[in-house]
Computed example of a mutant assay.
Amino acid sequence: MRFLCIGDVIGRTGRNALKRFLPEVKQQYKPDFIVLNGENAAGGFGITKKVFDELLSMEIDVITSGNHIYDKKEIVQFIDSEPRLLRPANYPPEALGRGYGIYEKNGKKVAVINLMGRAFMGIPLDCPFRKFDEIYEEVKNSVDYIVVDFHAEATSEKTAFGFYVDGRADVVFGTHSHVATADEMVLPKGTAYITDIGLTGPKYSVIGMKPEEPIKKFLTGMPVKYEVAKGAVLFQALFVEKSSEKIDIKRIKLEEE
């Protein structure tokens, strides 16, 4: 099974980057299953139904998210009815939406689990480690593969999670920091892992935003309105091919001025 996991898509610039690079990536790697983090896909914060449908039209199988999932008010109108849109499973039980799903593709069943770290996130969350245990017990006997998007700030928390689920999850990829790490690896028990995929969106930006705005905030301490940067685009993703004979993992970075 070949998996393509795409880093946080940032606004219209990120969607344009997808349209530019995804066809050639699909042609080269021929993925069976595509997961994309889309929580920043609408204006840099949240996701709308229109943007969700636009992403699905690119043959994305599942869209994961994180702390910005509820930023757009209209999300409450459609998240419960969209099985291919996930929010972190360790949100409080009353939160709208679902934290994982089971999807059938090419004769195989894939469980995709969306979890969020607790370090520096500022949201009351259940323990993502124990939440994985709970979901794993529910799905382990009914699926062929388990893929996890671990949306977290602290690299130590992401790495610890990777080792914690090693041998149980097939793929664990980190999101949220929008800065790719160079630590893609196969862990000792066979889990394909990377701490953070990076972003799909503006190349010349501060984690996707126009640089002058966060610079002003750092200099003055005053609140500013962030806007998605434009111009040169960047596409970052992780490709994993897993079979009984081998596990291949490759970090993908494509860019255009």
Rank of each mutant, 00 (worst) to 15 (best):
M1F: 13
G14R: 00
R15L: 10
Q27P: 04
F33R: 02
A41S: 15
G46V: 02
T48F: 04
F52P: 00
M58K: 09
I60M: 09
I63N: 01
T64H: 05
K72A: 04
K73F: 07
K73H: 11
E74D: 13
V76E: 13
E82R: 15
P83S: 14
P83E: 15
P83G: 11
L86Y: 00
L86K: 00
L86R: 00
R87W: 02
P92I: 12
L96G: 11
R98T: 10
G99S: 06
I102L: 07
N106L: 13
G107T: 08
G107C: 10
I113R: 06
N114R: 07
L115E: 02
M116P: 01
M116R: 04
A119K: 15
F120G: 04
I123Y: 11
P128Y: 01
F129W: 11
R130W: 10
F132I: 08
I135Y: 03
V139N: 03
Y145T: 05
I146C: 03
V147S: 03
V147Y: 05
V147F: 09
A152N: 02
E153I: 07
A154T: 12
D166H: 08
D170L: 05
V171P: 00
F173V: 04
F173P: 01
T175G: 02
T175M: 04
H176R: 03
V179M: 10
V179A: 09
A180I: 10
D183H: 08
M185C: 13
G190S: 10
T191I: 09
D196C: 10
L199G: 01
P202Q: 06
K203Y: 13
S205C: 09
M209A: 15
E213K: 15
L219W: 08
M222L: 15
P223N: 12
E227I: 07
A229W: 02
K230L: 14
G231Q: 09
L234H: 01
L234W: 01
K242E: 05
D248H: 14
R251G: 06
L254R: 13
E255M: 12
E256D: 14
E256A: 12
